[in-house]
């Protein structure tokens, strides 16, 4: 096992463990902080795959946004932000069963996929080609339609947020 594989296993274990902590932590603030760690782990996985652009974007978008999430958590939840009730309800065995079923299905599907066996394409000197990536996002033969749809969705969300948050105009 090479050093990179060991690093990957450590990061993966850390990410999964903190993802579990996100849903089991009692304080909502702690859950948000565990989420930071989990997303940071994903960024580290990107970094070990030499996808530095995605690693950095992961930090910018997610970890930067978590701060806002925390503030909302503090402002919108109960005073102490600590829930003392039971964390599962009666039907947790069924939920577990459904989750395991989905997991088994996904593992079966992915094990039939040939992509695991093809060798990864070598990354050119100096990291991934950002120019190519940018052009693919804006060229009609590339991903311009999903890119623009996402942009319009975000603009709509912005307008909606301003409408909801703004004071009603007097007539």
């Amino acid at each position: 096992m090479s050093a990179l594989q060991i690093i990957f296993l450590v990061i993966g274990a850390l990410t999964l463990a903190s993802a579990v902590m996100v849903v089991t932590a009692r304080k909502i603030m702690h859950a948000a902080l565990w989420l930071v760690l989990a997303l940071g782990g994903v960024a580290a996985v990107f970094a070990t795959l030499e996808a530095s652009f995605f690693a950095v974007m992961q930090v910018v978008v997610y970890i930067g946004a978590i701060a806002i999430l925390i503030i909302f958590a503090v402002m919108l939840t109960r005073k102490v932000m600590e829930d003392t009730g039971p964390q599962v309800n009666r039907s947790w065995p069924w939920a577990l069963l459904a989750c395991l079923g989905v997991l088994a299905g996904l593992v079966y599907l992915l094990s039939n996929w040939g992509g695991f066996l093809t060798a990864a394409r070598a990354i050119p000197e100096g990291g991934e080609n950002l120019v190519q990536f940018g052009q693919a996002l804006t060229s009609p033969s590339g991903f311009v339609v999903p890119f623009e749809v996402a942009s319009i969705l975000l603009v709509a969300a912005l307008v909606g947020a301003i409408y909801v948050a703004g004071e009603p105009r007097e007539k």
Partner: peptide, 16 residues
């Protein structure tokens, strides 16, 4: 090759 983005990302960490 994404140095500038790293600079922006560090700003997010300081907020945290």
């Amino acid at each position: 090759n994404v140095g500038l983005l790293l600079i922006i990302a560090s700003g997010g960490l300081s907020v945290l």
